[in-house]
Simulated assay, not measured.
Amino acid sequence: MDLSLFHILEILGTIAFAISGALSAMNRRLDLFGIFIIAFVTSIGGGTLRDVLMGNTPVTWMENIIYIYLIGIVTTIAIIFRNKLYIFKKSLFLFDTIGLGVFTITGVEVGVQNDLNPIISVALGAMTGTFGGVIRDILCNEIPVIFRKEVIYATACLIGGVAFVILDRLGVKLDIIYITTSMTVILIRLVAVKYQISLPTFYLIRK
Rank of each mutant, 00 (worst) to 15 (best):
K84R: 08
K84M: 10
I105R: 03
S91D: 11
F93S: 05
I80V: 12
N83R: 14
I66A: 07
T104P: 00
V102R: 01
V102S: 05
I65K: 12
Y86L: 04
N56D: 11
V102A: 01
F81G: 01
I79Q: 13
E109N: 02
W61F: 11
I98D: 03
N56H: 13
T97F: 12
F88D: 06
E63Y: 02
V74Q: 14
N83W: 02
Y86A: 07
I105S: 00
T106G: 01
L92Y: 01
L94V: 02
V59I: 02
V108H: 00
V102W: 10
I68K: 04
K84E: 13
I105H: 00
L85Y: 05
I65Y: 13
F88T: 10
W61P: 13
T57E: 08
L92V: 10
G72M: 11
I68F: 10
P58H: 04
G72F: 08
T97G: 13
I98A: 04
S91Q: 12
N64T: 08
G55I: 05
F95K: 01
L94S: 04
M62P: 13
G101D: 03
N56P: 08
T106H: 15
M62Y: 09
T97A: 08
E109V: 02
W61G: 07
G101V: 00
I87F: 11
Y67A: 00
T97R: 00
P58V: 14
I71P: 00
T97C: 07
E109M: 04
I73N: 11
V110P: 00
G55A: 12
I80A: 04
Y69K: 14
N64D: 15
F88K: 15
I66L: 15
V110F: 01
P58L: 01
E63V: 08
F95M: 01
G107T: 00
I79N: 14
I98L: 03
G72T: 10
V74N: 15
L85G: 15
I65C: 14
G55H: 10
N56T: 09
L100W: 13
Y86F: 15
S91L: 06
K84Q: 13
G99D: 11
N56L: 06
T106M: 02
I87R: 14
G55T: 15
Y86P: 09
F88Y: 14
A78F: 14
F81M: 15
T75K: 02
G107S: 03
W61D: 07
N56W: 03
V108K: 01
T97Y: 14
F88G: 12
V74M: 15
L70E: 11
N64A: 11
F81L: 05
F103I: 11
G55D: 00
L100I: 06
E63C: 08
L70N: 15
N64R: 09
F81Y: 11
F103Y: 01
E63I: 05
